[in-house]
Nucleic acid binder design. Structure first.
Lengths: 211, 211
DNA sequence: ACATTTTTAAGGGTATTCCCTGATTTTTTA
DNA sequence: TAAAAAATCAGGGAATACCCTTAAAAATGT
């Protein structure tokens, strides 16, 4: 049985790289190479891959949302997330949302094939680095919180709007919520980031790469 | 004459991707694929490539410093920087430090080969997106600085104080001037940077490296 | 189904920023 | 030395941000 593989990544080089790695294995067939989320959604049913390697840092949509959409219409599809960094909290969220594997981009051919076989057998595949990080999280409990403060989705919306130099009123109109709600979010952001005012919010947000 | 090519990127997939693109062109020969800066430094003289594709987002060192080192010991080497994003100020700094070309990672084979030929002929190669960005920068403000708006000494003091999340009152006490003077300075800073409020001041100041 | 988190919102303030105009003194530069 | 730029300060008002508390839906997770 031939395994049909598709790849979504906005970097042509990564597309080519994976395709090159998979060539030479006759039981594998690359049926789709997509550069954007929309390409993927448009062609996934037509191409009907068994496995999709999905870059989670796409420009137009985040990997979690795209995974959800794809799995809703293609429940049989196995998705292996691709990423540059091992962001543990992100890995967790992806796995909770039905993604079947998680690969760093510096992966060799052997691991690529192993990952595919694993997910096709219905199991989860995690690289050993990521596995180790997940284990550390459970026991230590301290690792994740020192670096990046975790904002909620709405808080991030407000954060972005603040960084766009909008006033509370303007933000409320943009997000369709009351100005009072915007203030609440801003206060919570300040508290989470340890900022004294909006200037501090922006400074810290840029520092911690939240923007 | 055979052109010898090497690649440095911490993602194996990108390494493979470029190698795959270059295969099938007989006059090209991939003589080195390095995953780290140290690999590159260790092997560059032995492998003696004519062109090096260099990822500027390496984990162990930044692209500018590595370029400097490589060019010091290998003046004949042509370096083409690889990146995910088009950070104009970074491009400029790279080019000033002797890098010969700049490529985004979503580049196809044709552009890859064109880039190599261009740099081997002694010219600079810039992708059209990046060229456009550079041109836009230049045409915006030709007469004065082009790069960063110049603040006066006192305005910089106030800028720093604002970035420390101080209020007008606190800044006035720190600098031994009237709160009204602080406000005047802040207004002038806003005007010079094109900011709508203090948040904009900080955002732009960090962007333009005024802090 | 129940507990937790998130999002929503309000009242009622106080503090601060933003914006205008106008002006004097000091420093730098041509 | 004259002209330009920078730094100083002020009045006054409107807009906005900041801060506290409280609390009910709504979404999410176990």
């Amino acid at each position: 049985m031939v395994i049909k593989v598709a790849i979504t990544d906005d970097h042509k080089m990564v597309l080519k790289g994976i395709a090159a790695m998979l060539q030479g294995t006759p039981e594998l067939q690359v049926v789709g190479m997509y550069e954007h989320a929309q390409d993927t959604l448009d062609n996934i049913e037509k191409d009907a891959p068994d496995v999709l390697f999905l870059d989670i840092n796409l420009p137009d949509i985040n990997g979690i949302d795209l995974s959800k959409m794809l799995l809703k219409t293609n429940p049989e599809l196995k998705i292996i997330a691709l990423t540059n960094f091992e962001d543990i909290s992100f890995v967790k969220r992806m796995l909770k949302n039905g993604v079947h594997g998680y690969l760093l981009k510096n992966t060799d051919k052997l691991e690529l094939v192993t990952a595919m076989k694993t997910v096709l057998s219905g199991e989860l595949f995690l690289q050993k680095d990521i596995q180790a990080s997940l284990l550390n999280q459970g026991s230590k409990k301290t690792t994740d919180n020192g670096l990046k403060p975790k904002l909620t989705r709405r808080e991030q919306d407000v954060l972005v709007a603040i960084s766009e130099e909008l006033t509370t009123q303007e933000i409320s109109e943009k997000l369709f919520i009351s100005p009072k709600t915007v203030e609440t979010h801003r206060m919570n952001i300040m508290s989470k980031l340890g900022a004294k005012n909006s200037v501090g919010i922006i400074k810290i947000a840029i520092e911690k790469e939240l923007l």
